[in-house]
């Protein structure tokens, strides 16, 4: 187990290098120039060149990358072009809000997915199952931004139940419905498959009550695919945060990222990309560890 984790930690290094290089190139090679957005268009070209040189933008792109990398290794991600604040400070201020949204959505998703998936499988084709099948497909079909706007329209503008911005409820609901939909189907499918296994019949043949058969024998096996899907869906959570934070004016990292992209604020973009990458990689590692804890076949493989 320790070797497994260590191995995975070592893999993170080349992975982060690759991600940083790619995203660096993509942001720099995209059309647009950070100086264009906030400097008087009638400015003296010499002055403009001075600003660009000050930010290092006159250097060849690979030199720019190596300079960025050298500083990043020392945990210096530069200063935001727009505010002049260190990128780390800026992200640090926003990160807790994003994590609050993500973690609460993640927990809410799990709390709903597992029981709904189990009940849908056990009571296959019941009204409950059919209702949640409908909700899931609807949830998958509806784009997040539209759902967010509609919820805002109904609950804030028309009913005045919730404020449109600055409240956790609406962004949380929007985000949860988005991730809930597919996951519930996976949990149901996994549970159905496990319930057809011979060891379930064996468990019943021992005289175990149905409750124990379902929760002890079936659910633990049916959690395995769910853990994998959860790990894989982490990037969606970040993508969702960009959209949802923008719609609900949620002062998190996602909205900061969208603003940074529009302003070609390179240092901030890179900081956010790298932090998201690290969080996703760590999340996947945690998913793998959880998988190994649940499934002894993984745990013992490398002994």
């Amino acid at each position: 187990m320790r070797k497994f984790v260590l191995n995975r930690l070592l893999q993170i290094i080349p992975l982060l290098l690759g991600i940083s290089l790619l995203s660096f190139l993509v942001t720099r090679l995209a059309p647009g120039d950070p100086t264009a957005l906030f400097i008087d268009p009638n400015i003296d070209p010499l002055e403009l060149a001075r600003v660009r040189a000050n930010w290092g933008l006159d250097q060849p792109i690979f030199i720019q990358y190596l300079v960025w990398l050298k500083n990043a290794l020392l945990l210096d991600f530069g200063r935001s072009y727009t505010t002049g604040l260190p990128v780390i400070t800026e992200i640090g201020e926003r990160l807790p809000m994003t994590l609050l949204l993500m973690i609460s959505s993640f927990i809410l998703t799990l709390l709903i997915t597992i029981p709904v998936g189990v009940i849908s499988a056990v009571k296959k084709n019941s009204w409950f199952d059919n209702l949640f099948t409908f909700i899931s497909f609807a949830g998958m079909a509806i784009p997040t931004f539209w759902l967010g706007l509609m919820l805002m329209l109904v609950f804030s503008v028309k009913l005045h139940w919730l404020p449109a911005v600055g409240n956790l409820a609406l962004p949380l609901i929007t985000m949860t419905i988005g991730s809930l939909a597919g996951l519930t189907r996976y949990q149901r499918g996994a549970m159905l498959e496990v319930l057809n296994q011979e060891y379930i019949r064996v468990a019943r043949a021992k005289g175990l009550p149905e409750r124990v058969v379902i929760f002890k024998h079936a659910l633990r096996n049916a959690l395995l695919p769910t853990i994998t899907i959860l790990g894989l869906s982490l990037p969606d959570l970040f993508g969702g945060a960009f959209v949802i934070e923008t719609i609900f004016a949620w002062p998190g990292m996602g909205r900061l990222g969208v603003q940074a992209i529009f302003q070609r604020n390179y240092p901030t973009i890179m900081g956010i990309v790298m932090l998201s990458a690290i969080l996703i990689i760590v999340g996947n590692l945690l998913a793998d560890i959880a998988y190994a804890i649940v499934d002894p076949r993984i745990r013992y493989e490398k002994k």
Partner: peptide
């Protein structure tokens, strides 16, 4: 079930729950 009449199944590869120790599975009944 299990107390007066017990059953041995066809395929030992699928009859045991892969995530529980054999001790746990024997202790259950």
């Amino acid at each position: 079930r299990g107390a007066q009449i017990a059953m041995v199944f066809q395929d030992p590869f699928t009859a045991l729950n892969p995530v529980l120790t054999i001790g746990e599975q024997i202790m259950e009944p």
